[in-house]
Each structure stands twice: as structure tokens, then as C-alpha cells.
């Protein structure tokens, strides 16, 4: 009997060890990104990063201002969220509250399936089909600009936003809706006045997760923004995002150089932004589950 207990305890410790790998990986991610990025703050210094020109390779000293990259990400992200958030919430309301049961049975797994579309394929489509369309419609010299990327990112993030907010809306107890219906509100009024507000934390989580995906998306922006690191907020211009910069330049950079460290600094910024968005989402989700 003692042996049995002994083996049970060692299993327990083994499982505990396996479980802590998640913590370990996150710690290592912070550690290794920080380790490669921090020396930059000591030598060229933080002020270098705050410049408005990103010219990492030049004959004299390169300039590593990430502001244009940051605004590039900001522009592309906000444009695509402006599109995908209302559409996504609308679709979530439709699937959760209005769709026929058979429709729901198809739409729910379909949305989940579509979250898996490889972003490189979406980028490819943008490059080959959507880009030329935009070029033609807007009479531009090139279709590779912030707008094209935003449209594609909106499509990419849509299933995620729908799935998470639909789950939140579905989770609102029927008991909360019943009084509203009993007072003569129509189902849709009830949805608008009762269900959606009750699901607000979950919807906020959906938006944060969607934003996290858009901010961190690499392949689409790499392929269709045109990758010109210019400081602009005009959607029809070419921009370059933080993710695309890492992807473009990390392959050719000299290990340990200022440029290499600057790229890791961008990585740390990305890590910080997505970590923050995720914290918001988790907070919101736990509030949602608590309130029900």
C-alpha cells in the first residue's frame, strides 16, 4: 500500500512539472526577448527608438526610429477593427439569437473552421487578387497599401471576433431575457437592451483577442502593405508594420548588431501590446463568467 501511494505522489509531481512548462515558456519568452533587446537601450539608447526614421542599414550610423512602424501597425489595426468589430458583433448576435437552429449548427463550426485559414494564403490572395482590384478601383500606381492589408485583416479576424462574442451572447441566461420579453419588448429589442449589454465583457474580450491577432499578424501585412516605412495615417499609402519589419529584416541581420537588437526591441513592444490586450480579454472573460 505504501508503494502505491508513493507512485501516486511521483505521478503528481511529474504532472506538476509538466504543468509548469507553460509558466516556464512564458518566462523564457520574456527573458530571451528581453536579453536580446535590452543592450540596445544601453548603447544607442531609448531615444534612438523614438525617432521617426527607420533606416537600419546605412553607411554611417543607421537610424532606428520605430515610430513609423508603430503608426503603420496602428493604422492597419484600427482600420481593420473598424470594419470587423461591428460586422463581427452583428454576426454574433445573428448566430446566437436570430438564426434558425439548423443554420446555427452549421455557422458555429464553420466560424471555428475559418479561424484556421493560414494567413499566408490570405496574404497571397491580397497580393494576387485584391491588391490589383484596389489599384484599379482607386486608380493608384500600386494596390499594396494599408487599406488592402486592413481589408484582409478584417476578414482574417472576423471568425475569431464572431466565435468569442457569440459564446458570450449565448451564455446570457434566458432568465434575464424573460422579464424583458414579458414587458412586451420584441426579441430584437431584448437582444439589444438586455442580452448584448449583459454579454459586454465577453464582447470586449472578443474585440481584444481579435485586436491581438491583427496586431500580431505578420504574413498578410508583409505581403500586401508595400512595406514602405513612412510616417503616414493615409490608408491608400504604403506602410510597414512592426511584425513585417521583424520578418523582413531578421533574416539578413548581423547577430548582436544594433539592428539585430532594434528588431528584438520591436519584438518586446509587440509582446507588451499583445500581452496587455490578452490581460484585458482575460479580465473581461472572468467578469463575464462571474456575473452569470
Amino acid at each position: 500500500m505504501a508503494r502505491l501511494f508513493h507512485s501516486d505522489r511521483s505521478v503528481r509531481y511529474g504532472l506538476l512539472f509538466a504543468t509548469s512548462t507553460s509558466l516556464l515558456i512564458v518566462a523564457l519568452i520574456f527573458l530571451f526577448l528581453g536579453k536580446e533587446a535590452l543592450p540596445f537601450l544601453a548603447n544607442p539608447g531609448l531615444t534612438q527608438l523614438l525617432g521617426t526614421r527607420w533606416i537600419p542599414v546605412s553607411f554611417d550610423a543607421g537610424s532606428f526610429g520605430i515610430v513609423p512602424l508603430f503608426t503603420g501597425t496602428l493604422l492597419v489595426t484600427s482600420l481593420s477593427l473598424v470594419l470587423t468589430v461591428p460586422l463581427g458583433i452583428g454576426a454574433a448576435v445573428y448566430i446566437a439569437e436570430l438564426a434558425a437552429p439548423w443554420e446555427r449548427r452549421i455557422l458555429r463550426p464553420l466560424m471555428e473552421l475559418l479561424t484556421a485559414i493560414p494567413t499566408v494564403v490570405i496574404g497571397f490572395f491580397g497580393l494576387v487578387v485584391l491588391g490589383p482590384w484596389i489599384k484599379y478601383l482607386c486608380a493608384l500606381p500600386s494596390g499594396m497599401n494599408a487599406l488592402t492589408a486592413s481589408l484582409l485583416l478584417a476578414v482574417m479576424a472576423f471568425p475569431t471576433v464572431v466565435s468569442v462574442s457569440e459564446e458570450a451572447i449565448r451564455g446570457v441566461p434566458a432568465a434575464w431575457k424573460r422579464p424583458s420579453l414579458a414587458l412586451g419588448a420584441t426579441p430584437l429589442q431584448t437582444t439589444w437592451r438586455v442580452t448584448v449589454p449583459a454579454a459586454a465583457p465577453g464582447i470586449l474580450a472578443a474585440v481584444s483577442l481579435g485586436a491581438g491577432r491583427v496586431v500580431g499578424e505578420t504574413m498578410v501585412v508583409l505581403m500586401v502593405t508595400g512595406n514602405a516605412a513612412q510616417l503616414t495615417l493615409w490608408p491608400l499609402k504604403s506602410v510597414r508594420t512592426m511584425t513585417a519589419t521583424i520578418a523582413l529584416e531578421m533574416g539578413e541581420v548581423a547577430l548582436g548588431s544594433h539592428h539585430y537588437r532594434a528588431l528584438f526591441c520591436i519584438g518586446v513592444l509587440l509582446l507588451g501590446v499583445t500581452f496587455g490586450l490578452n490581460l484585458v480579454a482575460q479580465r473581461a472573460l472572468s467578469r463575464q463568467t462571474q456575473s452569470h
Partner: peptide, 21 residues
Amino acid sequence: LAISTLAGLPPIVFGLFGLGL
């Protein structure tokens, strides 16, 4: 928290991490 963080990190950050480690 660590698990949800991992789920939300951009793929490129994993790439940087893999490169570093």
C-alpha cells in the same frame, strides 16, 4: 494566465523566441 498569454502571443514573437532560445 501563462496559458492564455501563450494563446494570444503573435506567431512572430514565437519566431523570435525560437531564434533566441
